[in-house]
Amino acid sequence: MLWYVLRRLAYVLPILLGVSIVCFSLLHLAPGDPLTSVMPEFASEQVIEQIKRSYGFDKPVPVQYLLWLFNVLTGDLGLSQVANRPVWDELVPAMVNTFQLAAFGIGLSLLCGIGLGLLAGYTRRLVTDRAITTTAIIGVSVPHYWVGLVLIAILAVTLGLLPAMGKAPPSDGFGLNDIRHMILPAVTLALIPTGIIARSVRATVIDVRKQEFVQTLQANGLPPRRTFLHVIKNASPTVLAIIGIQLGHLVGGSILVETVFAWPGTGYLLNTAIAYRDLPVLQGTILVLATFFVMLNFLVDLAQPFLDPRMTRQ
């Protein structure tokens, strides 16, 4: 088991390294000079040199990378060029908001996706299955921002049931108003993962139920609820892998959804950073989100052998 963990870790480290290199290169690949926004107009050669030195841009690129990496690992993501505050200070509240919304969306998509997928898988070719499958296809194919806008138009503007955008003003603790603000963005965010999870749960359950061991269970007189447990456990590795990927996408999807709903999370932060060419914020946000994505998949990989004993041997 320890061996398995180490081996998975050996996959993760190069990926993280790659992520960091890509993030670092953003600064150099982005069109224009990364310093234009901080450079005073009509600066003299001397001033330019000085500023370059103070940012470390006079050193060779690999050295710059190592210095940057060291700073990142010690929690220093640099200064926001727009707000002139540490990127970290911008990022933390945004991350808290994003994870709040994401947690709500994940809860929704797991609950609905797994529930509907099981129902469809167990009522294959019947009305429920067809209804769920069709809905899932529609849910997966419709773009986020469109659904978001339609929901706002109907539920917020026309019916006035829910707030259209933003986060509840800070009050004492987390309350009903916070949840009311989260419903529309969370539903929008959950839509695609719900569809994909439902479809994969359905397909996996149908697949597992066709396997011969299910007949052995029936031949031994075990009741449907015991057979169900066997089916669930057999389906779980596949479903978990898909859920892991979907959770990553869900966080990615938050960029659009947070913009549509003006939700002050990382997606929103990223969007403003792009608009203002605030490269350090861009860099820091992407780095944190990408690391989150990689670690999520790492955790999913770690969970697999507990669900399927055949995985540790290879």
């Binding site: 011969e212 061991f213 269970l217 066997h230 456990k233 057999n234 399927d308 055949r310």
Partner: peptide, 10 residues
């Protein structure tokens, strides 16, 4: 077929 007739994950 004893391979497929037994549940692989128990």
């Amino acid at each position: 077929e004893p391979m497929t007739a037994l549940d692989p994950v128990f």
